[in-house]
Nucleic acid binder design. Sequence first.
DNA 1: AAAGTTATTGTACATGTGTATAACAAGGCT
DNA 2: AGCCTTGTTATACACATGTACAATAACTTT
Lengths: 209, 209
Amino acid sequence: MTENRRPFRRASEQERRMSLIHATQTCIVEGGIRQATVRKIAAEAGVTAGLIRHYFPAKDELLCATYRYTMAEMTRQSVEALQGFEGTAVQRLHAFVRSALSAPGTSPRQHQLWASFTSLIPSVPALAEVHRESYLEFRAECSVLVTEVLKEQGRPCTAAQVEPLAIAVNAVLDGLWLEGCLATELFETGEITAIGVRSVDALLHPFAG
Amino acid sequence: MTENRRPFRRASEQERRMSLIHATQTCIVEGGIRQATVRKIAAEAGVTAGLIRHYFPAKDELLCATYRYTMAEMTRQSVEALQGFEGTAVQRLHAFVRSALSAPGTSPRQHQLWASFTSLIPSVPALAEVHRESYLEFRAECSVLVTEVLKEQGRPCTAAQVEPLAIAVNAVLDGLWLEGCLATELFETGEITAIGVRSVDALLHPFAG
DNA sequence: AAAGTTATTGTACATGTGTATAACAAGGCT
DNA sequence: AGCCTTGTTATACACATGTACAATAACTTT
């Protein structure tokens, strides 16, 4: 009886880990967290299930790594829009808002990933820390931009002034992000970003202080 | 060998179904969707696993019923605050905002339930319909309140005027709800609701039209 | 080219899960 | 009091899942 083993290619650690992370994302998006089993993830990545344990001591660590990667990608998208962007503080804020509310960060796919990881937090404590880091990182970015705008308007920039506004801006973006993800078909192209820009303008209008 | 069967009480259908729904909520909140197994749900409800199938043909139908119940409770909380509330349109909107952003609707518990069900949508299509109904119901309520405010301000109330504002109001509430749920410890009591009230005021200020 | 390293496969195992079903008893009916 | 209905228990089953590990082959080193 001839052994008929499946041929394979030895890949670098980074390449394999990224491949498994992407496969995990795909499985979660396509079938929900329920269908994201080690076997399906491995199949999606084009390897066998046993290999996962070679790179991740347990499945939960793969999930954690995928969560971290997913969040990092989202914040990166928003922040990158500011790199090398010249203009007034308000213009920079607008660019940030548009980027945060544009595809691919705002999509059913992204929301499915986000909700799935959130639903695991109670049973995988390590995910809670990843969440907290990501959240604070994004809000800090909002604070910076709000501060710039207040300065430009000649208004005081104490923490007491900035933080509530940063929280509100963050909230508008979270909420519009949510709506954009969940009800893509309900909005015309650009409608969400337009509402976002107008909303943060309203929130930061001197009247609203 | 003596049979030693556990004693039990025959309950009404409604009582049992509600008991199972509440048990499902508890299991999801305490252990995440992963731990919400038929056996743990049954134990939480004080019955044996087999009974679930007597009331729900399959586990997914119990999950669906629990999702519907959870969403209905949340919108009910916000709408009830308006029942018998007399005042200006702006005051009514404020009451709505405060209610929507107050406990128990805004809590880690509620968010955990919400995220968990969302994460199941790709593998349980029936949940998608429940989601859509709940979302549109809440946004319709926002539209009504926004229309009242615009009327009070003597502004036009066409759908083109109302809907973007309703979407934005909804978004602010969603976002603040999210933040309130996720980062309860970061905010002092009433801070979220205060930001919510100020934000919708800013959104509906004549300037923002 | 031969040897060594280890990434990868394939299989096995213990456990958990949803589901099915027969036996039983609690409460209602006559 | 005795019978009937059916809500409830208890057990079994087929299957999926995460994990463990020995065998193997792809690539590196010498």
